[in-house]
Amino acid sequence: MNGEKRMDHKGSGTSTFLKLKGVSKGFGSGPQRSEILEDINLDIREGEFVAIVGYSGAGKTTLISLMAGLLTPDKGSVTLKGEVVNEPSPDRAIVFQNYSLLPWLTVYENVGLAVNQLYRTWPEAKRKDWIEQHVEKVNLLPALGKRPNELSGGMRQRVSVARALAMNPKILLLDEPLSALDALTRATLQDEIGRIWEEERKTVVLITNDVDEGILLADRIIPLSAGPRATLGPVVTIDIPRPRDRKAVNHNERYKEIRREVLDYLLGEGGKKEGRTTLTRKLVLPDILPEDLNRPRMMGGRKTPRRRSELKNENIEVSV
């Protein structure tokens, strides 16, 4: 039912659900002041899946925090269905970049914390069902009684998703949910997120640093330019029919086109700041001191600590 509604919106493209208008945000004051986001304009329709890709440190978390109401914009406005967003609410569930599961609670209790808070009026049994239903949705029923430190990164992220889904939000905000995972787990979870979205047809904003991930999952993909003063680039509509198969899509011409379009912006106009972009990389130089084999090794002998001088920064200038 929800799905049909979405198709309507997509068809007509009229009613705006979440709207960001001329949003700017900076931190600090005086000489420490840094402008992070500038003049962000974005319309998201109900039931739509939008991906935002951008550089690390560009301000993606800041952007999604503004949508969630965890931050308030310095300029401009964020509105949901015409109402100004100025405080967080369970209507806008957010999956945090680093899971943010409470380590002292089990999987069940972590999801339960949200459910018990939001559905206080429900009878106990119904809440229990609801929790288990959502944990099942992310295939984690066997881990129901485990604490986060007993789970792998991928499992933690799934719990985080389950917690957000259990809140039955109007909009689901995903802040780089998969970027801390290895490539294989990442692919699995991408499929899982795709599947869940097909089932639930919620409005989703996915923040990612992976263009392919965005194209695979979203209806529209929007690049965020490099900071400071990051802003959104041109919207690219992903008109590749669903379900999208990871392997097949790679040979899809349209897919390649979209990919090029987004990357062009990110590497070109959206990456350029004051003519150049500088990437800073930490380099660890090998320890060139020969080891003294005559020196007795301590028990459980460890390598002598790396000297500070072994850590070097390398600046790579990218000019386009």
């Binding site: 405080e87 967080p88 957010i94 409470l102 914390l113």
Partner: peptide, 14 residues
Amino acid sequence: TDKDFINVARVLKL
């Protein structure tokens, strides 16, 4: 306290 935990509490309106 981890700021993210506080944010969780804020989103849930605990």
